[in-house]
Design a protein around this nucleic acid. Structure first.
Lengths: 305, 305
DNA sequence: ACGTCCATGTAGCCAAGCTACACGATGGGT
DNA sequence: ACCCATCGTGTAGCTTGGCTACATGGACGT
């Protein structure tokens, strides 16, 4: 029973295609196919089935892939042991973020991690609109994702979830708005306004529905943007109001945008780090995660004081 | 990070010698030495140290060997998964026993396991006097061992321990003995007798000391034997009395030996199965263990009714 | 019906890991 | 104090497992 082969099976379970596995593991499809065949012969029962053009795993294949994860975890834990003996995290850690979290956390994190020589962090940003967060864990060590409170759609998939911070979502208004003087606003105050929304399927969506229910009316959404800068620009131009994450707003032109807490509505988003459990064991990865957590805590502390 | 190499390091941790590892893994010492060297180069820190003629592990080496066990467990669990998918335990299971336990349990176990085609159980017996039970787990899948109540000297070593049964230790008397009519005997009744003992270092020893303390005197030990048949022969010849495990006695010449429970003394031995944790995960091994447990339960039930 | 994409065979190459043998070092036995 | 058994470790050379390159056949979309 070879670990490499198990790893291949696990990749196949995630990527659903021999060619995709081959690309991800820097091999030819032929090599992957051959190894899977050997694994099946060893197992003595079919692990894969043809399904049209591609391959799917059988029940046995899925079960084996699942326990392959445990093997990978144990292995990574072993390498972490000796990393700890050398007292240094080493190697490359890849990370994807959505723009706002990256802007808020990454500069500070990378400055903090500069002290660790030999630790290289490769960051990428990805539009949350296009990205399926759990799927990204196949290609990146750490995936920064956001979700609404309580809602953890990635628990069941066997992924490791590390909560980083919960960020309140406020209502962003232009400084000359009629509500700009209030300390906070309620659903009834804002339900009649023109809104700038987020693309369909975004977690914020649920909050807008809640405002409609509590405020008793229909929200008018004039535009839908994924990029917060764009949203803020529209607010400041007086073209509508919008939900804005509290810690990441402003920056561009302070003084022309005010944020008002939303009373009576559970308006928070959780920012979490998502990882494949084996990746989460690496000392280098854990070091980055620690830096992310301390940085997130500091950001939150700075805003509450 | 290769699993094979980790396995080698783990074997080295158990056997304390490259040549021993080579013998156990059917390789030349040179091959083992080379692989360990590669592992050290990968780790970037020394894992072994010369100590006279042999090798000892450094702290880092021991830590790594420990986590190598977790890897092995995960791997065996994976193969167990597919064994379960085929619904049959297969392969060879090696087992060592001390004579009395083997006599009591193994025939029934092997009869029960005859139903499992493809499952081969290789049994060996070994004099408990000569054997270091924990050390035997390096060479056998299952080690049947005995110990006194509460006393579990093999807990700390990271071995898997499965309790099979607790067997009372009675006082064996010839039928014409002056105490043969009693329902039970106390320490004071037997402390003045001539005893047949067990070799030094045997767990029974502690009970003899307890008899001396409670009975208030010194026990006279005329002979020391490891084999119970021999002990029983001496008892029946009127040459002394001895502690005899209740379930395994008799058989040879019933009617010339009687057993009397010992009042006020904690005279029991525990029979347990000892395994290396990775071996314990194999479905074949677990099947044999299950058979041992049901057989042990039946033996115990037959004697109490 | 055609082209494209996918999985999978076959031949051949490369490297990892083994054996065989030799050498220096250590420690017990006489 | 010597000798010799034993242990770990180098070096040379072979075997084999796993890869690439290329070819083949089946499934889907247009």
């Amino acid at each position: 029973m070879d670990v490499q082969r198990l790893e291949l099976l696990r990749e196949l379970a995630e990527r659903h295609s021999v060619t995709a596995v081959a690309r991800a593991t820097h091999r030819t499809p032929s090599a992957v196919s051959q190894q899977l065949k050997v694994l099946e012969r060893e197992a003595g029962l079919p692990l894969t089935e043809r399904s049209g053009r591609g391959l799917v795993l059988t029940d046995a294949g899925r079960a084996l892939a699942r326990s392959a994860t445990d093997v990978a975890v144990a292995l990574e834990r072993a390498t972490a042991v000796w990393d700890e003996f050398r007292n240094r995290a080493t190697g490359e850690v890849s990370l994807v973020t959505f723009p706002t979290a990256g802007q808020m956390l990454l500069p500070g994190v990378l400055q903090q991690l500069a002290a660790h020589t030999g630790l290289i962090v490769k960051c990428t940003d990805m539009d949350p609109e296009l990205s399926d967060f759990p799927a990204l864990t196949s290609d990146f060590d750490i995936v920064l994702a956001h979700s609404m409170r309580g809602q953890v759609p990635w628990g069941g998939r066997g992924l490791t979830v590390v909560p980083l911070m919960t960020e309140p979502l406020d209502v962003g208004l232009p400084t000359d708005h009629r509500l700009a003087g209030r300390a906070s606003v309620g659903a009834a105050d804002v339900v009649g306004e023109t809104w700038i929304g987020v693309p369909d399927g975004f977690p914020f969506e649920r909050i807008v529905h809640e405002i409609e229910q509590q405020g008793g009316g229909r929200v008018q959404v004039s535009q839908r943007f994924a990029d917060m800068r764009l949203v803020e620009a529209f607010i400041m131009a007086g073209l509508g109001i919008a939900l804005v994450p509290r810690y990441t707003s402003g920056g561009s032109q302070p003084g022309r945008l005010v944020l008002k807490p939303l009373r009576g509505v559970d308006a928070e988003r959780q920012i979490v780090a998502l990882m494949r459990p084996d990746r989460a064991e690496r000392l280098a990865v854990r070091t980055v995660i620690d830096a992310l957590r301390t940085r997130a805590a500091r950001v939150q502390a700075e805003h509450t004081s």
